Computed example of a mutant assay.
Amino acid sequence: MGSYLQRRLTQLALFSNLCLLGIGSAYADAALEISPQICIAGEGKPCHMNVELHWRGTGNKLICILSDTPQFADWCNDTKEVHSLTLNVDTRKDIQFVMVDKQNNQTLARVKLQVTQLREPPTRRRYRNPWSLF
């Protein structure tokens, strides 16, 4: 019973902190989605594809999209009518995209593009010798 109470108190403390920061109130429904979510690349080769980022729930706020890779410059919208962004991706590792409020740089949502490398199937080992005396 003690561990349940401790978890519940931790959850309530986290929720109250989020509300104080404004995340739990004004941007509770802000969402960032990526399509496709996974890129499958050949073994030792980079992932080449176009991805589309869609966002919703930002209200009247202008937003910026940031990434954890230097391949993409920070992008900010100039109008509230824009709700998507298409990017040409060329990478070997996962990319994290973060949507922030343009005015105060508050994080609204985040999404990750996962890159998976294909591996060649291992060759089947022969259990029998290929030759015979008979």
Results as ranks from 00 to 15, higher is better:
Gln103Val: 03
Thr116Lys: 09
Ala109Val: 07
Val100Pro: 02
Arg128Glu: 13
Val111Met: 07
Met99Gln: 14
Met99Tyr: 04
Leu118Val: 07
Asp101Cys: 09
Arg126Ser: 12
Gln117His: 11
Thr107Glu: 15
Gln117Trp: 01
Arg128Asn: 04
Met99Pro: 00
Lys102Glu: 12
Asn105Tyr: 09
Gln106His: 06
Gln96Tyr: 12
Leu113Trp: 04
Leu113Thr: 07
Gln117Glu: 15
Val98Arg: 15
Met99Lys: 03
Leu118Cys: 08
Asn104Trp: 04
Ala109Gly: 03
Glu120Trp: 04
Pro122Thr: 05
Pro121Val: 01
Lys112Met: 09
Asp101Gln: 03
Thr123Cys: 06
Arg119Trp: 01
Lys102Asn: 07
Met99Ile: 09
Asn104Cys: 07
Gln96Cys: 05
Gln114Val: 14
Lys102Tyr: 10
Pro121Ser: 11
Asn105Gly: 00
Arg126Lys: 14
Asn105Glu: 12
Arg119Leu: 11
Val115Gly: 03
Gln103Phe: 03
Tyr127Cys: 05
Met99Gly: 08
Lys102Arg: 15
Val111Lys: 06
Phe97His: 13
Gln117Leu: 03
Leu113Ser: 07
Lys112Arg: 14
Thr116Asn: 11
Glu120Arg: 08
Arg125Thr: 09
Arg119Gln: 12
Val100His: 03
Tyr127Lys: 07
Ile95Asp: 01
Asp101Ala: 06
Glu120Thr: 10
Arg126Glu: 13
Thr107Gly: 01
Val98Trp: 03
Arg126Ala: 15
Gln96Met: 15
Arg125Ile: 08
Arg125Lys: 11
Asn105Pro: 00
Pro122Tyr: 02
Thr107Asn: 05
Tyr127Met: 13
Gln106Ala: 11
Lys102Leu: 08
Val98Ala: 11
Thr116Tyr: 02
Asp101Asn: 15
Pro121Asp: 11
Val98Ser: 14
Arg124His: 01
Asp101Thr: 05
Arg119Pro: 00
Arg126Leu: 13
Phe97Ser: 04
Val98Leu: 13
Phe97Lys: 11
Val100Thr: 15
Arg110Trp: 06
Thr107Phe: 00
Thr116Gln: 13
